[in-house]
Design a protein around this nucleic acid. Structure first.
Lengths: 344, 344
DNA sequence: CTGAAAGCGCTAACAC
DNA sequence: GTGTTAGCGCTTTCAG
């Protein structure tokens, strides 16, 4: 058992060439005769030889050139959340398509990111994508000094220079506010994520700013944590008040569905008859039966395309300045916002 | 830029010890004095030294002992499916907790598994978990000969000896049939996955067998592909018939929700008034508003616990025989199956 | 175009 | 307990 695997030496012997010839046969632009390469490749496949990626990674660490592993680290906080599950799925396929392996690391919250990155760096990842979290400035420095590009997805890098790809949160908030004002809502509530969550805060800021332009103020506000249950709880608190909100904007679809749930089951309140509801993300379930949730869609496909392009570019060429594109969201009108104008 | 990173030699020099002392300081049970270790660890952290996992992996390939990388490959077909998204999330946390890294590979379907495994093996993964797919007997042989344990999640290994962890599909099907028979349904349909899907087939077999015990035959059958849309399509075909089914059992919750959707929107049919509906998995959305789907719950947490335990055991000790535990599903009664007995 | 040889950073004998 | 040394499998000069 645990038989040694076939190495380039075995192939070399069988093909009657040197070991370096075998190496060259497997290196795309290497100087080697077509014939030799063909013969080696044939022998190799007969023997079932596969180059050892780990060993390759070792030997590329020469001449002050950083060791390349062909692996990209992906750090994620809520992998079970539909939005992130979809994002991870797309990252995986997109990275693979370009020849990179994905090392997935799950952290419980923001505080685990630095440790995760340390673990990942021991494996000499060539780049890292962080979903919905940020790294410390200290870690950012370390990555920079090691030449490891970092990309923040769904978060911005704040002061220090790292790549980030995300949606126009403020504009998304404005879009929601505009729609709610158009149908003349007056008691408008916002359900966000944790109070220090940057994404949630930006959505809220845009929302409030646009409300103000119509002379409207935020009526109520609740904080959740982007889970369904937290949406239910926030909804329960909102609907338990003597004066209930007549419209709610949630920082995520999952929380909006939680609100919908508690409204229906615990208060017998329905959207859009009794209140209007807008979510954010446009997860598949938003379109499902009984939901028909009006929401702001994130262009996941394009965001991930951009993210991978940026990261790959920086992993290949150094000295590419950090990119921080922002993508516009799209209002998806379904059935949770009342249609007609009603004066009181 | 791309400055060379700190190696054990740098630490050795700074701590005035040999390089191997540094190595030992970072190897749990290695023979080294407490004092020396402490001093080395201190110097190391001051310098920001982190052992190079790739190099470690290289050097463990000695004496006919297979190279260990500390990485486990995970191959998945439908990462965006809620059931698998949750499974991946749990695998990730569970593997991490035991000190393993997860290399995630997404394949489009069954046919991609062997290639994925080949890619992963170049990275010298110590074990592999395959979600909802199987490997060829040929690849299974290769893995065995390389001493790489394989675990199939949500699939069984068929003839050849590999580990597998899955739910009692037949029993789950029987449970669904029993419930439907109890409330006296007569025109019972099944919506499965692709016709060659083993999981779906087993659920169907158990379902039909139990139906037969009550003198009932399967009325109709449709094949989907475990997606929401395929559920909608299957539902549309079912409800378009002149004689409609009065009960439907779906091989997954996602498809069941698709059926619910099309029934409601396109046919104005509601469960449980117009038909009964049972799903499989118990994804979070099954409990959501407007769904309240009766379903067979998979004990994800326990299954993944078992899967990781089995794999880790085999990665540490060789010659552990393959394990193939089956877990019972649990009937979760919600609101999509009619309650009372109604004679015709 | 091809072979020989020098490492990449680490672990594990092997001496002392 | 500690240092010395020989690789792990590969890429990449450097000669020829």
């Amino acid at each position: 058992m645990t038989s040694k695997s076939i190495t380039s030496y075995d192939v070399a012997k069988a093909a009657n060439v040197s070991q370096s010839a075998v190496s060259r046969a497997f290196s795309p632009g290497a100087p080697i005769a077509q014939q030799t390469r063909a013969r080696i490749l044939k022998v190799a496949s007969e023997l079932g030889y596969q180059p050892n990626a780990i060993a390759r990674s070792m030997s590329t660490a020469r001449n002050d050139i950083r060791q390349k592993s062909g692996m990209v680290g992906v750090i994620v906080t809520r992998p079970e959340d539909p939005f992130f599950a979809h994002s991870i799925a797309r990252f995986s396929r997109s990275l693979q398509a370009k020849g990179w392996q994905m090392l997935l690391f799950t952290v419980d919250d923001q505080t685990g990111v630095d440790d995760a990155l340390n673990s990942l760096m021991q494996f000499k990842i060539d780049g890292v994508i962080i979903l919905s979290a940020i790294l410390s400035e200290h870690m950012a420095d370390i990555c920079r000094s090691h030449g490891i590009p970092v990309l923040l997805y769904n978060r911005s890098g704040g002061d220090f220079a790292v790549n980030s790809v995300q949606i126009e949160n403020r504009e998304g908030g404005r879009t929601a506010a505009k729609l709610l004002c158009e149908v003349d809502h007056k008691r408008i509530a916002f359900v966000g994520g944790e109070v220090d969550d940057a994404t949630s805060r930006e959505r809220k800021e845009g929302f409030i700013a646009r409300l103000a332009e119509d002379g409207c103020e935020l009526f109520l506000e609740e904080a959740g944590d982007f889970t369904f249950d937290s949406g239910r709880e926030a909804g329960a608190r909102l609907f338990s008040r003597t004066e209930r909100p007549d419209a709610i904007f949630c920082a995520s679809d999952v929380m909006a569905l939680g609100v919908l749930h508690v409204a229906r089951l615990q208060f017998d309140l329905h959207a859009p008859q009794d209140f209007s509801l807008i979510g954010f993300d446009d997860i598949p379930a938003a379109a499902w039966p009984g939901h028909e949730l009006t929401t702001i869609r994130q262009p996941i496909r394009r965001m991930i395309q951009a993210a991978v392009d940026i990261l790959v570019a920086q992993m290949s060429t150094s000295d590419v300045p950090p990119q921080t594109p922002r993508f516009p969201g799209t209002l998806i009108v379904r059935d949770t916002v009342r249609k007609a104008f009603r004066s009181n």
